[in-house]
Amino acid sequence: MNAVKPVKGLDWGTAAISNAQWAGALLRDVLLDAGYTEDTSRALHVHFEGLDQDLTGTKYGASISFQRAMNKQSEVLLAYEMNGEPLPKDHGFPLRVIVPGVVGARNVKWLGRVLVSAEESRSHWQQNDYKGFNPCVDWDTVDFKSAPAIQELPVQSAITEPKPGQMVTPDSDGKVTVKGYAWSGDGREIVRVDVSLDGGKTWNVAELYGEKQGEGHSWAWKLWKLEASLPTEDKEVTIICKAVDSSYNVQPDTVAPIWNLRGVLNNAWHRVHVSVHRD
């Protein structure tokens, strides 16, 4: 039996990711129109402040580097449309920030103000949350100032079919179908997804499909599928997936070396335990 060390956070499962088509104004163009240039001195960060606020009246805030904001390839967007429609209220109407390839915490909704500053945002969510730490750091010893705020994310993949605990029945050829998604931060493309049908003893290469994305602009997930025979006669099997991106970043096999008290940046191999029904 595997012991799971608890964290303070939400269990999103495999669902904290989605794809959409966004439209709006490039942040770079807005900053240029406001008189800023790529050589603007002391402009090291761009702050985003939302119109939403907590019970103390503190508004949500975050920031990215000025360099990322001004980089043409980063394609940072002040979005007012989603999937060809006006931005829905739940997604930040009337305006939100889309920072492709970067953690969602910087994609501020209900945008009320953009500020160029020599300093990083002082908001709680930039300074005291969404940071990764050594596995031995706990809430009594953590120093949030010692770690940088999370920006681009590591390579990740997940199994969406079959579901954990599901009964799987091989087809007439003895094959099962496994599906999922893979993604990596900062526009890095997924070049391979490996899938094991016997708990990691042997591996298959999944088929990748979906829209072709430009080099350095792989903002959307890559869908994958595998149809293969089970290499074991066991009645219960563990299916595993792991992804490789265009920089040959790979996922770690277990969570133990990357565990942290908030549970963020967990990109260990995804495992789904299923039962097998054979006629």
Rank of each mutant, 00 (worst) to 15 (best):
L95Q: 12
L95G: 06
V97K: 04
V97E: 02
I98V: 14
V99S: 05
P100C: 06
G101I: 03
V102S: 02
V103F: 09
V103Y: 06
G104L: 07
N107C: 10
N107K: 07
V108P: 03
K109E: 03
W110L: 04
G112I: 00
G112C: 01
R113E: 04
R113L: 03
R113Q: 05
R113T: 00
L115R: 09
V116N: 07
A118F: 07
E119A: 13
E119H: 15
E120A: 14
S121A: 12
R122L: 14
S123D: 15
S123R: 08
W125H: 11
Q126H: 10
Q126A: 14
Q127E: 14
D129R: 08
K131L: 05
F133A: 00
N134C: 02
N134H: 03
N134S: 01
P135W: 01
P135F: 01
D138R: 01
D138N: 00
W139K: 04
D140L: 00
T141N: 02
V142E: 00
V142W: 03
K145L: 02
S146L: 00
P148I: 01
A149Q: 00
I150S: 01
Q151M: 00
E152K: 04
E152G: 04
L153V: 03
V155I: 05
Q156G: 09
Q156T: 12
A158K: 09
I159S: 02
I159R: 04
T160A: 05
E161G: 05
P162E: 05
Q166A: 15
M167P: 12
V168K: 10
V168M: 08
V168A: 08
T169E: 15
T169F: 13
P170Y: 10
D171Q: 09
S172N: 14
D173N: 11
G174N: 11
K175M: 15
V176D: 07
T177E: 15
T177Q: 14
K179N: 13
G180M: 05
G180S: 05
Y181E: 11
A182I: 05
A182Y: 03
S184F: 01
S184L: 05
G185K: 04
G187E: 00
R188K: 10
R188T: 05
E189I: 07
V191L: 08
R192P: 13
V193Q: 11
V193S: 08
D194T: 10
D194W: 06
V195I: 15
D198Y: 12
G199N: 09
G199I: 09
G200L: 13
G200T: 14
K201N: 14
T202P: 14
W203F: 13
V205M: 13
V205Y: 10
V205H: 10
E207L: 08
E207N: 08
L208E: 05
Y209A: 06
Y209W: 07
G210Y: 01
E211V: 12
G214D: 08
E215V: 12
E215C: 05
G216S: 07
G216V: 12
H217I: 09
H217E: 11
S218I: 13
S218A: 11
W219T: 15
W221R: 09
L226I: 06
